[in-house]
Every structure is written in structure tokens, then in C-alpha cells.
């Protein structure tokens, strides 16, 4: 209750459309857009963040759903909640994103936390982020009078960051119509942040495998060499055939090791050896990557 005082005399704007929101951002420098507020308000309550103004995005209904474009792309509103992404219709569309949304925190958080918030917060453990990286999704950034398209990975790495006055509005995801998997290791049964996660998608049209490892680095990592190597090990022509073996089990295990080696550095000076934290993380990533590919090819 005493924290309520933090918001006294603070401007809170509630735009009803994207246009109104970018207008509000343009006229109020220092204003912070807020959607589910699951990360933001924790920082405000703890006194780590004292924004001059808040722009609530909850009333912008157009951002809370999705639409299709060109037959091959889904355009997801930044205001899609994790709970919405976990529903069967969405899960049929982009299964890995639904899997990631399902594991993101307790129901209270999933009910309000949004896709856009997950990207904007850019926490290393953000569950949707490795999936978006594996899908090579792009983000639409709107500002008063202008719109631009940026790959999510560029946004996350800071190669092409969000600029002042810009609002994340849409996320473009290619529809691949093929198995996708998201696996997360937390060491417990209840909701928790990932110790490591792996998103893996098959792209049969291009005969490609795309994979991203989350939570082991500040941003999701793509093991590109492992991806292209394993794509060559898969018997793509046998897909769909009854009882077909698409990959040699030894190649599955090798893929796991390849991914882990690419994404988790050696322990370094003080972390060497089988018992080190780095070695344990490598083993976890190897198991996740092996299982993910195994499930995708099942």
C-alpha cells in the first residue's frame, strides 16, 4: 500500500490506438510505455525506476490479436498475452512460441505479461526470445509519422536498438507449417526462470534447421554451424513416411554437443573441469538441444 505513493503526481496516459500512443510518446519525453507491467512495476515499486510518465497500452485492442500477411507470415500484436499465446488456435500456428508462453511464470504473470513486454524488457531469461530468434522474426517499430522493421535479434543485441519515441507494435513471424520445439530447464516443477532453454524450428521448404539457445548469455545465441551441419544429416525426403528414421541417433547426440560447444564457452581460468558451472551448463544445453531435435523429427 505504501508503494502507491510512488505514482502520486505522475502522469498516466491511456491511449486507445497506436497513433495516439506514438503521439503521446512524442510529446512526453521520458514517458515509459507499459503493457503487462510484470517487470516494470516491480522496478518501480522497488524504487529502481521512477518514470516521469507512464503510457498504458492496455486499451489498444488492435495490438492484442494477430493477423496474416501474404499467406506466409503471421503479424502478432505486441500486446498478445502469454496466456493468449498458449491457447490451442495459436499453438497450432506457432507451436514453439505457445510452448514458451506456457512456461513463462505463474498464471498471474501469463495473464497480463505480453509478447512486446518480453522483447522490450529483453531479460536474458525471456522465454519467447529464443523462439523469436530461431524463427528469425522481425519487429515493427512505430514513431510519429514513421514505421521501420528491425530483426528481433538486432533489437536484442543492440545492433539496432529501440530509439527514443519508438513503440514496439507488431512482431512478424514466418509460418513454417513444420514441427517446432521449445524446451526449458529450470530444475523444478513449478514456474521458474530458465537455467537454459532451446528453441528449435524446422524449415522444410528450405531444408533448414534453426535453433537458438536462451538464458545462457545476455541474448539468445544461434549455433549457425551446428544448424547447417545437422540439416545435412536429416533425410528430408523421408518426412511424412510411416516409420521413417529421419536422423541417426548418433547425429542427434552430436548435434547436442555441437550446440552446447558453440553456445557455452569453456569454464575459463577458475571454472575448468567436469564439475564446473560451465561444464554443467554445457551438459544441460546439450541434452536440451538433443531432445529438441529428437522431438521435432519424431
Amino acid at each position: 500500500m505504501e508503494h502507491g505513493g510512488n505514482l502520486v503526481n505522475r502522469t498516466i496516459m491511456l491511449p486507445a490506438s497506436v497513433d495516439e500512443a506514438v503521439e503521446a510518446l512524442a510529446v512526453t519525453p521520458g514517458a515509459v510505455p507499459v503493457a503487462g507491467a510484470t517487470d516494470l512495476m516491480e522496478a518501480v515499486n522497488a524504487g529502481r525506476l521512477r518514470p516521469a510518465a507512464l503510457i498504458g497500452l492496455g486499451r489498444i485492442t488492435e495490438l492484442r490479436g494477430w493477423r496474416y500477411e501474404d499467406g506466409g507470415t503471421a503479424v502478432l500484436g505486441a500486446g498478445l498475452t502469454h496466456a493468449r499465446m498458449d491457447r490451442p488456435d495459436f499453438a497450432a500456428l506457432i507451436p514453439a512460441l505457445a510452448d514458451a508462453a506456457r512456461t513463462a511464470g505463474p498464471p498471474q504473470v501469463r495473464n497480463v505479461g505480453t509478447l512486446g513486454g518480453n522483447i522490450a524488457t529483453a531479460a536474458p531469461t525471456g522465454d519467447t526470445l529464443p523462439v523469436l530468434a530461431a524463427l528469425e522474426a522481425t519487429a515493427t517499430l512505430a514513431r510519429a509519422g514513421a514505421v521501420r522493421e528491425v530483426p528481433i535479434s538486432h533489437l536484442l543485441t543492440g545492433l539496432d536498438p529501440l530509439r527514443p519515441g519508438e513503440l514496439l507494435t507488431w512482431v512478424r513471424v514466418p509460418l513454417l507449417h513444420a514441427p517446432q520445439v521449445f524446451l526449458k530447464s529450470t530444475g523444478r516443477s513449478g514456474p521458474a526462470r530458465a537455467a537454459a532453454s532451446v528453441a528449435l524450428v524446422l524449415d522444410p521448404a528450405r531444408r533448414g534447421v534453426r535453433c537458438a539457445v536462451g538464458a545462457v548469455a545476455p541474448v539468445p545465441l544461434r549455433p549457425l554451424e551446428a544448424e547447417s551441419w545437422v540439416a545435412g544429416c536429416i533425410d528430408w525426403d523421408a518426412r511424412g513416411a510411416e516409420g521413417a528414421v529421419l536422423i541417426d541417433p548418433a547425429a542427434l547426440a552430436a548435434f547436442g554437443e555441437y550446440v552446447a560447444g558453440a553456445c557455452v564457452p569453456e569454464g575459463g581460468a577458475h571454472g575448468e573441469g567436469a564439475g564446473s558451472a560451465a561444464a554443467r551448463l554445457r551438459r544441460t544445453v546439450a541434452v536440451l538441444a538433443r531432445r529438441a531435435l529428437g522431438r521435432a523429427l519424431k
Binding site: T103, L183, K184, S185, S189, V287, L288, R291
Partner: peptide, 12 residues
């Protein structure tokens, strides 16, 4: 069957 790792986890 709730696998170790919880719903949506990596359990196999």
C-alpha cells in the same frame, strides 16, 4: 503424468 521439470518443461 507430470514429468520432472514441470508442465512445458524439458522432461523426457
Amino acid at each position: 503424468w507430470l514429468l520432472p521439470g514441470g508442465p512445458g518443461g524439458a522432461g523426457d
